[in-house]
């Protein structure tokens, strides 16, 4: 059967074609390059273009890379969990209990974005450091006897910093999903005998599921690949897979291996995201 475009579809295509072209060039092309690279080999200064799986074999079997991949996944899962769990009550409060000036509140949530992310990470260093705000304050108050060291230059610091940075991105989709819930559905559930708690689990949560899934994916996907935060506050225990990819493309001068690591982590994240999406859909039922 021949491709059939009706007039409207054709027009639509024309309208989006500049954007489409841009996306193709800026997104798909580099991606294709990375994938191609991953099948080549670095031969000191030149590149051997014979296709091979050697890079993938190395990426998947070398203990160091495995550790880094697991750690990246672990960090991003923890960050996502913490962020979504903290974001939900905020979104809920905004949606259900703020009667006036919702827009103002949403606006305030974006305030942290007014400064650069780098600056915000540095601020966390100041807060969490050995002589940082946190330790000094708690020492002064006599709550701790000596400065806490487990809060900077390790995994915890990465989690705290990332969770803070991504919170607004998690709040917004959950807020939108909650706003979309018809309030008469909640009254109907009450009318049919549900206590507020039961109603929350039977109506509010399932209907908010699309927002929760969106929030989860929005936080999970980019945090796996984050490399600034681990570099600045992670110490050596907090390094993640992206730091290794960066090293391979840079100092180690092994772009094909770096590409194989990048593609591998992309596939892993892709699978996890698909899984989350399906589970969310099942939990939320077919919500429209």
């Amino acid at each position: 059967m021949a491709w059939h475009f009706d007039r409207e579809a054709g027009q639509g295509l024309k309208l989006i074609s500049p954007t489409l072209l841009y996306v193709l060039v800026m997104l798909a092309a580099p991606l294709l390059m990375v994938i191609t690279f991953s099948f080549w080999t670095q031969d000191y200064l030149t590149i051997d273009t014979t296709p091979t799986f050697a890079n993938y074999r190395e990426a998947w079997t070398t203990p160091l890379y495995q550790v880094l991949m697991w750690r990246s996944l672990k960090i991003s899962v923890i960050v996502t969990g913490v962020t979504v769990v903290l974001a939900f009550p905020i979104a809920y409060y905004l949606s259900f209990h703020v009667k006036k000036r919702k827009a103002l509140w949403l606006f305030l949530i974006t305030v942290p974005f007014w400064t650069s992310y780098l600056l915000r990470v540095f601020l966390w260093k100041v807060i969490l450091g050995y002589n940082g705000v946190f330790n000094t304050a708690f020492l002064e108050l006599g709550l701790i006897q000596e400065p806490l060291t487990f809060i900077l230059y390790n995994l915890n610091a990465v989690v705290i910093t990332l969770a803070h940075a991504w919170a607004p991105f998690a709040i917004l989709p959950i807020f939108v999903a909650l706003e979309k819930i018809d309030r008469s559905l909640l009254e109907a559930a009450t009318d049919l005998g549900d206590s507020p708690m039961r109603r929350f689990f039977r109506i509010t949560l399932p209907l908010a599921m699309p927002g929760i899934v969106a929030a989860t994916l929005i936080v999970l996907i980019p945090t796996v690949g984050d490399f600034i935060t681990p570099r600045l506050v992670g110490g050596t225990d907090g390094l993640m897979i992206s730091n290794m990819i960066q090293i391979q493309f840079g100092k180690a001068n092994n772009a094909p291996l770096g590409a194989a690591l990048a593609v591998s982590s992309m596939v892993v994240i892709g699978l996890i995201s698909a899984g989350i999406f399906l589970v969310g859909k099942k939990l939320g039922g077919r919500v429209r």
Binding site: D182, S184, L185, E187, A188, A189, T190, D191, L192, G193, D194, S195, I203, P206, L207, G284, G285, R286, V287, R288
Partner: peptide, 18 residues
């Protein structure tokens, strides 16, 4: 409301979509 012997038919019907 959840402990009253009344039940309501809402104007929008409020059928749970999920």
């Amino acid at each position: 409301a959840n402990r009253r012997p009344t039940n309501m038919v809402f104007q929008s019907y409020a059928i749970f979509p999920h």
